[in-house]
């Protein structure tokens, strides 16, 4: 595990170099590869870039695309902004919480789903919109949410995803 962690980290750093200016990009890319950034990741980056670990932590915790907590197998990011809200987002918001049985900002106890909000993802013309992992789903309704989540659940059961 530790060897893998070091390898992942060094690969990203190799691409961006060890200049402190690249910190945000390194953190973001590594987050994408590793799913989330553990304290070990952050410490290693601090060493490689010759920065105080407090600074690396402060930057990592600032940005929403960088996770310092482990998330579920699938991450739902629901757009909470006004254009999606007036297009029926309120009902979809409630449907998501009900469907998963958790409030926004949390992960299901079985670690299958994390329910997060995101600010505008620029797909407002088809709002309300959510992202599941890297896929964008638009024109959502409570019924459609149920359908989509069911598809994921069935695919997971079948081992396809």
């Amino acid at each position: 595990m530790d060897a893998q962690l070091a390898q992942q980290t060094d690969e990203v750093i190799k691409h961006y170099g060890t200049d402190a200016e690249a910190l945000v990009e390194i953190l973001r890319d590594l987050n994408q590869i590793a799913g989330h950034l553990s304290p070990e990741h952050l410490l290693l980056i601090a060493q490689r870039l010759n920065l105080p670990s407090s600074k690396v932590y402060s930057v990592a915790s600032f940005y929403s695309l960088i996770n310092i907590k482990p998330l579920g197998r699938h991450v739902i990011r629901f757009c909470e902004d006004a254009p999606c809200h007036v297009a029926g987002g309120r009902e979809v918001w409630e449907a998501l919480e009900q469907e998963l049985g958790i409030p926004f900002g949390e992960t299901t106890p079985d670690r299958q789903w994390s329910l997060l909000t995101t600010s505008c993802i620029g797909a407002c013309a088809v709002g309300p919109v959510m992202m599941i992992d890297d896929e964008i789903y638009g024109n959502l309704t409570p019924e459609k949410v149920h359908e989509i989540l069911t598809q994921y659940r069935e695919a997971d059961k079948g081992g396809a995803v």
Binding site: D81, A82, P83, S119, C120, G122, A123, C124, A125
Partner: peptide, 8 residues
Amino acid sequence: DESEPGTF
């Protein structure tokens, strides 16, 4: 860094 909600 276009991020005003509703702007794309």
